[in-house]
Amino acid sequence: MSGHSKWATIKHKKGAADAKRGKVFTRLIKEITIAAKGGGGDPDGNPRLRTAILAAKAENMPADNIKRAIQRGTGELEGLSYDEITYEGYGPGGVAVIVDVLTDNKNRAVSEVRHAFSKNGGNLGAEGAVAWMFSKKGVISIEKDEASEDKLMEIVLESGAEDLNDEGDTWEILCDPKDFEAVVEALKAAKIPTQTAEVTKIASTYTKLEGSQANAMIRLLETIEDLDDTQNVYSNFDFDEASLS
Rank of each mutant, 00 (worst) to 15 (best):
E222D: 13
T26D: 13
E149S: 06
A161H: 09
I202Y: 04
H115V: 00
P92I: 02
L164M: 07
N65M: 14
A147Q: 03
D104T: 00
A8T: 15
R219T: 08
S5P: 15
V97T: 05
V139I: 07
N105W: 00
W171C: 02
N120W: 05
G3Q: 10
P62L: 15
G93W: 06
H4N: 14
L77F: 10
S148T: 12
L80G: 02
K119P: 00
E31H: 14
K57T: 11
E185K: 05
P62I: 14
V99I: 13
V199R: 04
I155L: 12
N236C: 10
E172R: 01
G211F: 07
N65S: 15
E162Y: 00
K13I: 11
V95S: 08
H4C: 09
E154M: 02
K57F: 07
A17G: 13
P62F: 15
D104F: 00
A8W: 15
G211E: 12
Y82L: 15
S135P: 02
G93A: 05
F25M: 09
G15L: 13
K191P: 01
E143Q: 09
I98E: 13
T223M: 00
L77A: 09
D179Y: 05
A17R: 13
V139H: 03
V24R: 12
T194E: 03
G15K: 14
L54K: 13
Q195I: 01
D145F: 11
E146G: 00
E198S: 09
A35R: 14
P43L: 13
Y206S: 04
I224P: 01
E143M: 04
L227R: 00
G168R: 08
G39C: 10
N60A: 13
A56C: 08
V184M: 01
T26R: 10
V156I: 08
K191H: 02
L152K: 03
S212Q: 06
G89H: 06
E76F: 12
E225H: 11
A214T: 04
Q195M: 02
N46E: 09
Q195Y: 09
A58Q: 12
S2Q: 14
D104H: 07
E59M: 15
K144H: 04
L152E: 00
G168N: 07
S141L: 10
P62K: 15
G41I: 12
A161P: 07
D179W: 03
E222I: 02
E127H: 01
T196R: 07
